[in-house]
Simulated scan of single mutants.
Amino acid sequence: MIRIENLTVLPDRRKIFVDGAPVELGYTAMDVLLILIEANGALVTKDELMDRVWPTTIVADNNLRVQICGIRKVMGEHHKLLVCVPGRGYRLLRPVHPVHAASTFVARPDLSQAAR
C-alpha cells in the first residue's frame, strides 16, 4: 500500500482510493502512475514512460498526455504534485510513502500487437 496525500494505491491489486473511496483509473493510466510511484520523486523521461507502457507499440505523444490528465483528475486538489518537466518527462513532486511492502511494478505486455 502506498500513500500520496489523500490517495491510497494498492499496486499488487491495481486499485486506487481517494479519501478511502475506490475510484476508477484506466489500465494504462495505472501503468503510468505505478512507474511514477516507483521513481519515488525522480524525473521519469517521456521516452522511458512510452517504452515501458507501450513497449511493442508506436503511439503518439498525445496518448501519454491523456493518461497523465486521467491521473491528475483522480488526484483532485493534489493534481499539481504530478508535474510536467517540458521536453523531458514527468515526476511526482512529493515522494510516496509505502505503508506496507509493495512489489516492483512491471508494465503489462501489449497483447494487441501479438494477436496480429
Rank of each mutant, 00 (worst) to 15 (best):
P98D: 02
M75Y: 10
L81P: 04
V53T: 02
G76V: 03
V66F: 09
N40C: 07
H97P: 03
P22L: 03
N40A: 10
Y90T: 04
S103F: 10
M50Y: 07
M30F: 13
K73I: 09
S112Y: 04
Y27T: 08
D12G: 01
H97D: 13
V83P: 00
D61W: 14
K80G: 09
T104G: 13
I2D: 00
S112T: 12
L64H: 10
L49V: 05
D19P: 02
P11A: 05
L36H: 06
K80L: 08
P22M: 10
I16V: 14
L43V: 14
T104R: 15
K80F: 05
Q113N: 08
D31F: 04
R13D: 11
H79Q: 14
H78T: 09
V74Q: 02
D51M: 07
V18M: 08
P55H: 08
T45C: 05
L33H: 11
H79V: 01
R3P: 01
K73N: 13
H79S: 09
G70R: 12
V83H: 05
A107M: 01
M50D: 03
R108Q: 14
W54Y: 14
V18L: 14
M30T: 10
K15W: 09
W54L: 03
I68D: 00
P22T: 06
D31I: 02
P22K: 11
H78Q: 11
W54C: 05
V106I: 12
A29Q: 10
R88V: 06
A114N: 08
L7M: 04
V106M: 12
M30C: 08
V44F: 05
R88K: 15
R72V: 00
V32H: 01
D61N: 15
P95N: 15
V83L: 02
G87H: 01
V23P: 01
N40K: 13
G20C: 07
D12P: 00
I71N: 02
R52T: 06
L10R: 04
E5P: 00
T8A: 06
I68L: 04
K15D: 05
I35L: 15
T56C: 03
V106F: 11
H97W: 10
A39T: 09
A29M: 12
K15V: 06
A42S: 15
P11F: 06
V99K: 08
L34Y: 04
R14V: 05
A29F: 03
Q113D: 08
I37H: 04
V23M: 11
V23A: 08
G41K: 12
V44T: 12
A114T: 05
A102P: 04
N6S: 11
P86R: 14
D31T: 09
H78D: 09
G87F: 02
L10N: 09
R91E: 01
P109N: 09
A114R: 13
D61V: 07
P86E: 06
I4S: 00
S112V: 06
S112R: 12
G20E: 05
E77P: 02
